[in-house]
Design a binder for these strands. Sequence first.
DNA 1: AATGAATGAGATTTCATTCAT
DNA 2: GATGAATGAAATCTCATTCAT
Lengths: 217, 217, 217, 217
Amino acid sequence: MDTLTTEPHLRHWQRRKQARPGEILDAALAVFAEKGYAGARMEDIAIKAGVTKGTIYLYFPSKEEVFKSLAREHVGQSLIAAAGHAETFDGSAFDFLKTFYARFMDMVLTSDIAVLPKIIIGESGNFPELARFWREEVIEKAITLLSSVIAKGIARGEIRALPADYVAKLIMAPALMCLIWRTTFEKTSDHAFDYPEYLAIHCDIFFKGLAPEGPKP
Amino acid sequence: MDTLTTEPHLRHWQRRKQARPGEILDAALAVFAEKGYAGARMEDIAIKAGVTKGTIYLYFPSKEEVFKSLAREHVGQSLIAAAGHAETFDGSAFDFLKTFYARFMDMVLTSDIAVLPKIIIGESGNFPELARFWREEVIEKAITLLSSVIAKGIARGEIRALPADYVAKLIMAPALMCLIWRTTFEKTSDHAFDYPEYLAIHCDIFFKGLAPEGPKP
Amino acid sequence: MDTLTTEPHLRHWQRRKQARPGEILDAALAVFAEKGYAGARMEDIAIKAGVTKGTIYLYFPSKEEVFKSLAREHVGQSLIAAAGHAETFDGSAFDFLKTFYARFMDMVLTSDIAVLPKIIIGESGNFPELARFWREEVIEKAITLLSSVIAKGIARGEIRALPADYVAKLIMAPALMCLIWRTTFEKTSDHAFDYPEYLAIHCDIFFKGLAPEGPKP
Amino acid sequence: MDTLTTEPHLRHWQRRKQARPGEILDAALAVFAEKGYAGARMEDIAIKAGVTKGTIYLYFPSKEEVFKSLAREHVGQSLIAAAGHAETFDGSAFDFLKTFYARFMDMVLTSDIAVLPKIIIGESGNFPELARFWREEVIEKAITLLSSVIAKGIARGEIRALPADYVAKLIMAPALMCLIWRTTFEKTSDHAFDYPEYLAIHCDIFFKGLAPEGPKP
DNA sequence: AATGAATGAGATTTCATTCAT
DNA sequence: GATGAATGAAATCTCATTCAT
């Protein structure tokens, strides 16, 4: 019946068409993660995406652009997303930081996005614009966000008076280490790195170190 | 007779021959640093070393081996060297850590070695053995060293009772961030990152956070 | 429905795809014949096949494999084919041998296959597996076939009692000489080698020499 | 002194020829035998000769010339030498042939010269002059020699009236097969080829086949 | 005469990209 | 829109040859 009403070019593959770029990017992310930028072959990406090489070029003009799209694509959802509620949050600075940290680490430890910074690190020489983009759009924004929270904490007397931006970068450093450990060394290592434990200790030490001289009774 | 007493004077090209591998590795380090592993052409390395492509193959059997030699070469002098005096040191744990940290950061901030970890991060998918080697020979050794110092500090009551290895990894995290910043983002950034200031604040917060519960009134 | 009945018509380039390996092998045979294995450049083969270098690698993983395919490819049709009717033949041994010989020589003298053994001879040091393959699949089989015919001839009293396998190898020796002459010396020589005459004399002498002692007075 | 009297065209290659270490040619023969012409590296030859690459170029202007010298060098001693006593021999043709054959096969089976024809076969496409040289200087001369002996045999009634040159080539064919077997297939084969037996059978059959029609009673 | 470090042309192979179907 | 055969530029690596010592 509906075979008769066939609308010549319908739904099924149109949905695919819309989905295609996403599928390709997902595949690309996985392949870049495994082989690095140069080592990733367009054919690998195509196979993983279930299409052929030529198809990729319908959606992206070049390998480089695939890579860049990838980096841009994931920015929207990444860190920033993790911290979307900053303005409206009004608990203590430490509470906010802990929540933010937990969300961020969740992303680092479970999603494939974690490989992106790794690739950008590896390819920064070849794609300086990308490093710049990432720094400006991701890092700087995250730091700005955290800085404002920290500044608020300082104003409230929860935190010692220290340069907020450096404090923000310090708080993120162990997260970066986890990211690199997971994407670079984890698979060569036999005894597990207990990330939550590591980060809990970090918060313990760090927050304590941030507290004002507690001269209280 | 005088053939016997003839001093085995090195002819000038013999001196060169001995120097060549080092010259090539220096050139390779620079080129790898700029282009990454895959982006580095043997010809670039050759030109930078002042020789031709073929010459490199007199000393190294392949590009991969040039890279591996580089990684192995610099390990001996690197971190470990920076900490050679651990056993004999008998000041406070904090003093040792500060010294070690300063030396390490000096290396990170002034020498080209800093690009090596960066490349290893970028290429870990293609050279897992190298990631393993680096973890075992560099990271693990450094962590072990720091752990023992920290454990001593705990024993003496200078430091709170915490898992020493995690504390060691936490203390190194900002150093890693500096390394990555310098090799990846610095040149895309216009306002300077004040590394010493950053690290000073790190030590300030971190050491404070490690101190035992405030000696009550 | 009609999607199911749609004839899977080959598009023209699909037909080419199927033809390509054969075209490439033909070209390779010609180039190897002219230059030998090492002297043959992949580009030469490509040009002769009407494609570019890269195309060859769509069908064969390496130059070595092109060569091996060539050797394997032609074995099925070659000598063995020439003797397919051995089991059913029931004339005299001499008749069979003459027919076999004629077919074999026809191949040697008219087709390009003749260059294959020549190349295998030249490259046996570099491709021992290939020499082994050729010996087992071609030579040994041909000899076995001839031996059985000769043995039958001996049993029937047509041929003197002699080791059949050596007799088989002896009968092929002048054929080998023709093959080598044609592929190696013919073009440097100005006066023709009359192969059929040569082989006729061979059969004349050889068969006479094989006959049993003259049947008494 | 005589430097002043320098004779401008004093055949520098003649001086070389005098000084030329046969060691280099011996080494070259061995290496060419193992690897073929293209596969043989000048360095391999040098090492085998106990000198360095550069030294070879003091005696030979190029690899090609090493190869050609080799081919020329060994001609003097080869087949021709084996048959030097042809003119003065006055036994039966069969006796001479047997002796010649035995000497020739001895050379084929024991000396390294046997690899030369093999190489020439493999490289005839690249060195047609060499194939020509070998044909003219070795093959043709040997055939001429044998032909004259056979013609004498025919004249004496020992041998049937047949074209002497073809008979000569026929008698050499199994020798060629032995040469090729030894240099190409022997090492890939597990069960031995009994060359003397093979050749004895050859002579048995062949000489019988050459004999005039049995002078019946 | 001999050395051996250095050269550089040239070969194989890879792979991003194109385009006819 | 999708395909996949074909392309060709570029990279790695080899090795005959040169030349300062």
